[in-house]
Write a protein that binds this DNA or RNA. Structure first.
Lengths: 188, 188
DNA sequence: ACGTTGATTGCAGAATCTGTAATCACTACT
DNA sequence: AGTAGTGATTACAGATTCTGCAATCAACGT
């Protein structure tokens, strides 16, 4: 570890969220983010592949964890239940960061360029889930379709979780969304 | 119409596909595309919002047509059938462009940056379908979930259509994919 | 002939992102 | 203490993407 004050990535993320909120995403330069964090533009790119990535910290690790959790779920569970338990397993982490998640969502909603990245991440999550489901023995096209609806249900649950005035847990909304999914699927 | 040779966008697209295939997406500059098309870099940006968009011609119109077709489908049809008929309606257009679609797919598969844009387009299609389904009276979350699985089924059908050695029509693969969807949904 | 229209072009410039090498602060070893 | 090694940060140059603005060009109508 160097002598520089730790938490470099966190400071860059914090600075980025502040500036994006103040002036908007396009009107903020990477150099400005770095300066507010007490660093240089080049250092920013040492930590994030591009300007958008600063708003998706730990996303790749999250995807990897979901993949492993789906793979490791009890073999007796149905594919959909395996995904639900995988989602629910780490949902506390989000419950403790509701406010930060809300600010992040406002930024994503305000800038199409950021939503594009979010959608790419969602698609990557779907592919990872499909891969894990196949590892459980599920065959295509069931794996692909199940993964797709799972991601859709997750997004639905996340949206309701953020909009919920009663502050229900993400786990609660996940279970509700998957219940809705079962109900809707019966109409197909 | 100006005096310049027509088909400017088509020429730019053709040049872009050629160069992307020859040298790869990243190693091709917009200036090179424009030069091969007999135009200038600035003209490229008069026709396409950014470098990626050149590979997604008419995508916005396609989405708009699907939205209208879903909205206009017979009210007696189930939501899923409405989407299927909307997809099938214009599928001949793709059947006549199989080879071009194949080259395009190879490019998308080879470059993550392009897949990201494709995923954004798919998400936009899903939102448009969800909107159309709500206009048909379907309520959330059914509209959102149905739209998501529809897009997934469409992608599945498109993938099989391109991989099919027997050259079945896209319409055939669409019906098969939606049939798989019905089957899979029963296991949820 | 003349003005209008729409597409194309030239040019300047900001911003993103990369490659390369140097610098810095700390650690470990002698 | 002194010295080499390590990893993070920095400086700098440069290619590329994308935008704004004004000028040019070729048709078309009157």
């Amino acid at each position: 570890m160097g002598r520089w004050p730790g938490g470099t990535q966190e400071r860059l993320q914090e600075a980025a969220i502040e500036l994006f909120t103040e002036r908007g995403y396009e009107r903020t330069t990477v150099a400005e983010i770095a300066t507010r964090a007490g660093l240089t533009e080049r250092t920013f790119y040492n930590h994030f592949a591009d300007k958008r990535e600063v708003l998706f910290p730990g996303q790749d690790r999250f995807i990897a964890e979901i993949r492993e959790a789906v793979t490791a779920a009890p073999p007796k569970q149905s594919p959909l239940d395996a995904v639900l338990t995988a989602f629910t397993a780490g949902s506390n982490w989000f419950d403790q960061r509701r406010k930060a998640a809300q600010r992040r969502r406002n930024l994503l909603d305000a800038h199409a360029e950021l939503r594009e990245r979010e959608r790419a991440k969602a698609a990557a999550l779907g592919e990872a889930i499909a891969c894990a489901l196949r590892a459980r023995g599920l065959s295509d096209p069931a794996a692909t379709l199940t993964a797709a609806v799972s991601v859709a249900a997750h997004q639905l649950a996340a949206a309701r979780w953020l909009a919920d005035p009663r502050r229900g847990t993400l786990g609660h909304h996940l279970r509700a969304a998957f219940e809705d999914l079962h109900h809707t699927a019966r109409t197909w």
